[in-house]
Structure formats: structure tokens, C-alpha cells
């Protein structure tokens, strides 16, 4: 009991306080300057990029992942296909950072095999430079862990759909399309939105992949925060980093709260 609370205090609560207090302190004095510094164009554009990147990959990843989850749910429950895909996605969902960046460089980079294969059929993909841009390559790379994450998160919900609901709809006179519109769809909606929010925070918090892939500039908020560590310390920059970190926590906390609410509703419907 005591070790647990002591540990959490030192390594979780104190860091949280450091961020919160640091966001409002500069040179030992309380200030709102750090928060005001969030209005700098570099920070606002990084925040905007982060939000767009996270939102787009969350929506696209959620839709693709949901289709995949449904397809997998129709396979035999103890079959090899389902086991293999869930294991694969379980690893890929956590597969960020360096290896992921390597993988995409080896595929779409200047000498990547797909780049070369496309070149032989006459399609030039611009030497793979698009891969380093946050609104092109990074989106594709993020999808590589967003889709698997969606499968892992959403599959239990799809499998919670009881065959009786479909059969009851049919005996009452409904077609397959009507089942999805009136029964299956509405039942899955809270789980789907919840999973989408989870995907958003997942992309929003990701640092490693972008850091390993993007070497110039800091187009994303996590990279901006990371920049306050590695760059030559401009006076007070460190505490602006804390303000950015606080902004990030606020966004993530809001989204996670919405997720928790939706998840509770979904679990009431899909009694497992």
C-alpha cells in the first residue's frame, strides 16, 4: 500500500505538479507569460498540425479498422486467421518509433522497393521526400499503427453483437441493410466513437515515430516540446515547454473523459 502511493507520488504526481506549476512560473516568479507564449505562430501551427494529423488518421484509421474488425469477426472464433490477425495487430498497434520509420523508409524511401517498383512502371513518387512531410507521409505512417489499434479496440464490440439481434430483426421482417441501419449500427456507435477518440489521443501523443522520421523543423506539438530539450536553451523556453505539455494534457484528458463516458455506455449494452 505505502510503497505504491510513495512511488506514484514521486514518479507521477510530482512530475504532474512540475508541469502544471512550471507552466505558470518563469525565473522563479509566477507569470502567465508561458501561456501567452502558446500564441506564438510556431506553437499554434504545431498544435494545429497535430490536431489535423490526429483527427485525419483517427477517422480514416477508425473506418478502415472497423471494416477489418467486422471482416475478422465473421471468421471462425478459434481459427488461425483470427488468432494471427489479432496477434499481428496487437504488435503493430504498439509498433511506433524507430522501427516503423525504418520500415517506411525501406518501402517508400528514395531506394525503397515500392518506389523502385513504381519507377519501373513509370510512376515517379518524387524520391520519397513526401514521406517526411507531416500531412502526407506521416499520415500514412500513422495509419500503420492506427488501423491495428482500431482492430484491437473495436473487435470486442463487434463480437459483442449477438446473432440473436440479427435473427430477431429478420423474423420481424427486416432486411440486412435495415439491420445495420436500425440495430447493428446504433449499437456499435458509442464503441466506434469511443475507439475513434482513443485513436485521436494515440496519434496526438505519439512522439517517437515523428521524431525518427522528421529531421527538419518541428511541425508537430510533441516535436516542439522535444525541441525545448535538445535545442540550445533560449531563456525561459523550458517553461514554455511545460505550458505546451500542459496544453497537451488538457486536450488528451478532455478526449479521454469523453471516451470513458462512451465506453461505459457501450459496455452496458454489450453485456460480456
Amino acid at each position: 500500500m505505502v510503497p505504491f502511493f510513495a512511488y506514484v507520488t514521486v514518479f507521477l504526481l510530482i512530475p504532474a505538479l512540475v508541469v502544471v506549476i512550471g507552466a505558470f512560473v518563469s525565473g522563479g516568479r509566477p507569470t502567465l507569460g508561458n501561456i501567452r507564449a502558446l500564441g506564438q505562430p510556431a506553437v499554434t501551427s504545431a498544435l494545429w498540425h497535430s490536431v489535423v494529423l490526429s483527427a485525419v488518421t483517427a477517422v480514416v484509421g477508425a473506418v478502415l479498422g472497423a471494416v477489418l474488425a467486422y471482416a475478422v469477426s465473421t471468421a471462425s472464433p478459434r481459427g488461425v486467421l483470427k488468432r494471427f490477425l489479432t496477434s499481428l495487430c496487437g504488435v503493430l498497434a504498439q509498433f511506433g518509433g524507430v522501427t516503423l520509420a525504418f520500415a517506411f523508409l525501406a518501402t517508400f524511401g528514395a531506394t525503397g522497393f515500392l518506389t523502385r517498383a513504381l519507377a519501373t512502371v513509370g510512376v515517379q513518387s518524387g524520391g520519397g521526400l513526401w514521406l517526411y512531410e507531416w500531412d502526407k507521409g506521416l499520415m500514412l505512417v500513422y495509419l500503420y499503427f492506427q488501423v491495428p489499434l482500431m482492430l484491437i479496440v473495436f473487435l470486442p464490440a463487434v463480437e459483442g453483437l449477438r446473432p440473436q439481434w440479427r435473427e430477431a430483426t429478420e423474423t420481424l421482417g427486416g432486411s440486412t441493410a435495415l439491420y445495420w441501419r436500425r440495430v447493428g449500427g446504433p449499437i456499435l456507435l458509442p464503441s466506434f466513437i469511443g475507439a475513434l477518440l482513443l485513436l485521436f489521443t494515440n496519434a496526438f501523443s505519439a512522439y517517437a515515430t515523428a521524431a525518427a522520421l522528421v529531421s527538419q523543423g518541428s511541425p508537430l506539438l510533441p516535436l516542439q516540446i522535444g525541441g525545448t530539450f535538445t535545442s540550445e536553451v533560449i531563456l525561459g523556453r523550458e517553461n514554455v515547454g511545460k505550458a505546451m505539455a500542459l496544453a497537451m494534457v488538457v486536450v488528451v484528458a478532455l478526449v479521454m473523459t469523453a471516451y470513458a463516458v462512451l465506453d461505459r455506455r457501450a459496455s452496458r449494452w454489450l453485456v460480456r
Binding site: E167, E170, G173, I187, V271
Partner: peptide, 30 residues
């Protein structure tokens, strides 16, 4: 003839109520 055109009423073993509808909405569905 497919199920949805057979004009049947069926009661399943369990869990067949649509969870996002009230009892009344379930009964009204058909």
C-alpha cells in the same frame, strides 16, 4: 422464402432484446 418475408414471431433463448431500445421501442420495432 427468406426469413424476413415469412411472417413469424420468434422468442430466443436469451439476450435477444435490442439493447439500445426501451421495452416499448422493442415491441414497436416490428
Amino acid at each position: 422464402v427468406p426469413t424476413n418475408r415469412r411472417d413469424l414471431g420468434m422468442v430466443f433463448q436469451a439476450y435477444s432484446l435490442f439493447p439500445h431500445m426501451t421495452a416499448r421501442q422493442n415491441v414497436e420495432f416490428g
